[in-house]
Design a protein around this nucleic acid. Sequence first.
DNA 1: GTTCATGCAAATCGTTTGCACAATG
DNA 2: CATTGTGCAAACGATTTGCATGAAC
Lengths: 126, 126
Amino acid sequence: MKFRRSRQRESILELLRSTKTHPTASWIYDKLKIEFPRLSLGTVYRNLNILTQQGLINKIDCGSTFDRYEARNHPHYHFICEQCGSIFDLNTPVMKNLNNRVSELENITIKRHMIEFFGLCEKCKK
Amino acid sequence: MKFRRSRQRESILELLRSTKTHPTASWIYDKLKIEFPRLSLGTVYRNLNILTQQGLINKIDCGSTFDRYEARNHPHYHFICEQCGSIFDLNTPVMKNLNNRVSELENITIKRHMIEFFGLCEKCKK
DNA sequence: GTTCATGCAAATCGTTTGCACAATG
DNA sequence: CATTGTGCAAACGATTTGCATGAAC
């Protein structure tokens, strides 16, 4: 796939680079509506996908478009297969002191954390 | 809010407790359709929300129903405010050896990981 | 018998897509 | 001029909700 330049896409990238927040598509749409009065949300989504493909921006996701549930038993981390999307519980011990360590470093109060590890599961590795 | 018991809700909890997978609502729906032929997806969703409220199950999420984007610069972790949903980049150094450590422990190949810390941000703390 | 839960269908919301036209190289 | 990007509107898929009926306490 070959990409051409477009003023819309360049403005989206510029806008994302200029902010420390983690915008949603509609936030971007609202901002750029001033520069491009005829802009459509579809264009924003299309360009966000292209920029992600190009590795110029990151989409913050958990590896699934579905809500997923689990019966709470004990704290644990997750391993998510990048190919098939399966989620596995890990036995790796939870870092209990991590919240406190980071709280001190950042000067905020952290109550909990989640870690997702990504890679290929047994089946997809073959 | 007061909750009554319902056979549907109890079966959903039982099902979630009996599996090591991380089911979606429709997977649960399919399984329970045998026991409750008139079951509706709405009921599954309602009960999943109630069970989550009661703390009996976990919903695996990243703190946002919107896709969020950021311009990639350097690896970092995220802090997410449990109240307002804001996402902040942390300066805490990334644990480069974590992938390898966990890979050895679990005997799988981990390529990357994400950490989200949760708590209350400056504004919401007040 | 009052309140909560259910089934059903319609509505909602974020995101994607088909199409005709405009912009890029 | 061949191809990619745009705006617009319709479609999509996961989740939620309104309503009349049924179950729980």
